[in-house]
Write a protein that binds this DNA or RNA. Structure first.
Length: 398
DNA sequence: AATTAGACCAACCGCACGCGA
DNA sequence: TTCGCGTGCGGTTGGTCTAAT
């Protein structure tokens, strides 16, 4: 099955778009929607291929795009999600309202990757580079667990992103029936998402529920949700003790289940991973920036909690207001104290180096037994999992 | 002021995948 | 089941801008 060219390239314009071309594309989509991208250029009177039009629209002309400098919170989200998903820019973009995957990708490559590298953190693995020197026994098991988690969540996120995109397309089509493009009517996205979910056999209950006690939240994702185990289910539970229990399976009972048990407070509560990972982070004290990294991770954890709460509170559909630049999703995030990202913004490696030792002692109580680094690691992944579970379907993007 | 190097980012390229005939 | 089409995605390129020399 060969790949057909997206269009006849003879006579078609390439390179930067002119304002006139932008205007034509905008006017056409405003009036007709994009429909088939391949057919669009001819109808719109553009000497471009459909692919080029689609890129121009999705990366630049779309009305719900926020341009300009990335906020600290956005940087933080990118870093955390990249730790989990890798270069899955579209999946990452579903968690960053109004940002395109291309923009995020560019920002990562030109800014964040360099900063992490400068801090001595491998931008690919998100681990201190000195980690590579550690023994591989327990670490490989732990890494394998995390890798499984990441892969599974990645797949889930992809599916959700796909559904969300389709949902957006559907709601966009709906808008052309109901009114001008740009903002989705409140609740329309979730409605169409549910339709799609049904269509693709995904359970439409995907999303957060919050216990009446208010101190725990459960995300049921997948086919059937928690109450219906006839199909694949992902359940993440966060309690007051921030003790996530994530079980994953692909079937009723015969499928393998990976359980992740951890805690963010008190090293006395040993989880499965802790036993294996107890020694993993030993010796990392030599890594100059880790204490700062730890501090940031802890802050990020509180941030993701805020994000999570905010996500819950905004269940029930998005309004045009929620799509505006000063909408609450950013305001809430801005409440977060500077921390993790601050450290990334710190250009002075020397400062981090000199500060890190002191903070390390303060934060760890001088134990220096390496368990702190285990906690760091765990907190880091917990925070990422928290972040991931602010479901894309709840994102203002959709 | 001129030149060079690096940073930034819009846009392109080609592969992968889903869907329908 | 196969094939072609349409589209999404991630990697890469190349033009422009800016800072350094």
């Amino acid at each position: 099955m060969g790949r057909s060219p997206c269009c006849d390239k003879v006579g078609l314009k390439k390179g930067p778009w002119t304002p006139e071309e932008d205007q034509k594309l905008l006017a056409y989509i405003d009036e007709h929607g994009h429909g088939s991208w391949r057919a669009l250029p001819a109808k719109a009177g553009l000497q471009r291929c459909g692919k080029s039009c689609r890129l121009r629209w999705t990366n630049y002309l779309r009305p719900d795009i926020k341009r300009g400098k990335f906020s600290l919170q956005e940087e933080q989200i990118i870093i955390q999600l990249h730790a989990l998903l890798g270069n899955r820019w579209s999946a990452i973009a579903t968690h960053l309202p109004k940002r395109t995957d291309n923009e995020i990708k560019n920002y990562w490559n030109t800014h964040l990757k360099k900063r992490l590298a400068k801090m001595g953190i491998d931008p690919i693995t998100h681990k201190p580079k000195s980690d590579a020197l550690l023994s591989t026994d327990g670490q490989s098991k732990h890494a394998a667990n995390l890798s499984h988690m990441a892969q599974w969540e990645s797949a889930r996120l992809e599916a959700e992103a796909r559904l969300a995109r389709e949902s957006k397309l559907r709601s966009h089509s709906l808008q052309h029936q109901l009114g001008p493009p740009g903002f989705a009517p409140s609740g329309s996205a979730s409605t169409s998402a549910a339709q799609l979910v049904n269509k693709t056999a995904w359970n439409s209950t995907t999303g957060w529920t919050k216990s009446s006690e208010g101190n725990s939240a459960v995300l049921n994702t997948g086919l059937g949700g928690a109450a219906n185990l006839e199909s694949p289910t992902s359940t993440l539970t966060f309690s007051e003790n921030a003790r996530p229990i994530m079980s994953k399976g692909l079937g009723v009972s015969s499928m393998p289940v990976i359980e992740f048990v951890g805690t963010t407070s008190g090293s006395s509560e040993a989880g499965i991973i802790k036993e294996e990972g107890e020694q993993e982070w030993k010796g990392l004290g030599s890594s100059t920036n880790l204490p700062d990294y730890k501090e940031g991770i802890e802050n990020s954890l509180s941030f993701t909690s805020s994000l999570h709460d905010m996500t819950i509170s905004m269940e029930g559909g998005w309004t045009p207001e929620s799509l505006r630049p000063n909408s609450s999703h950013i305001d809430v995030a801005n409440v977060m104290e500077e921390g993790f990202t601050n450290l990334l913004l710190n250009d002075s490696t020397d400062k981090s180096l000199s500060d890190s030792g002191k903070e390390s002692d303060e934060n760890s109580g001088g134990s220096g037994d390496g368990s702190d680094y285990y906690e760091d690691n765990k907190n880091y992944w917990n925070s990422i999992l928290n972040l991931v579970n602010s479901s894309p379907s709840d994102s203002p993007m959709f």
